[in-house]
């Protein structure tokens, strides 16, 4: 066990944990966030995706000891109902989700992508999101929402 100080969504948290424990468990159990989610524990699906200094990472395989001073932002830190991220707005407008368990992967990955890439083509959007999983089959909605958000962020 060791003590770690984590900067999550702009707040500082102290966590006592096994250094090998993935960040995901700290976020869910020690800090008590509803999201991200455990999907595979293998970095194959994206359900656990958070931003680490702005870059999407898979928190299910990222040891808590590797975070250091980096800033962690989760889906709930991306925006609020009062001040939503364009992707959150677009998700609601396009009625994207079915079960919604996968949304951390899509939104957090797309948020970093759209920040760095203005006016992407559909092919570029698809490539940026390659490998993320959605089992309910909301892919058409996801593409509509990311395109809508891209326009909002244009």
């Amino acid at each position: 066990m060791a003590q770690f100080t984590l900067d999550v969504n702009g707040k500082t948290h102290r966590v006592d944990a096994d250094p090998d424990m993935p960040l995901l468990y700290a976020l869910k159990n020690d800090i008590g966030l509803n999201n991200p989610q455990f999907g595979c524990g293998l970095a194959q699906c994206g359900a656990c995706t958070v931003h680490l200094d702005g870059q999407p990472i898979r928190s299910c395989i990222t040891p808590v000891s590797s975070i250091g001073n980096a800033k962690v932002v989760t889906l709930s830190g991306l925006g609020t109902p009062e001040k939503p991220h364009p992707l959150q707005t677009a998700y609601v407008e396009e009625q994207v989700t079915q079960c919604g368990y996968c949304i951390n992967g899509w939104i957090m990955t797309a948020a970093a992508f759209l920040r760095d890439k203005k006016n992407p083509t559909e092919a570029e959007i698809k490539t940026a999101l390659e490998g993320l999983k959605c089992r309910c089959g909301t892919h058409m909605n996801i593409l509509r929402a990311v395109k809508r958000a891209a326009t909002m962020m244009g």
Partner: peptide, 9 residues
């Protein structure tokens, strides 16, 4: 859907 994207659900 909003409660899901804002992690309230």
């Amino acid at each position: 859907i909003a409660p899901k994207v804002f992690c309230q659900e």
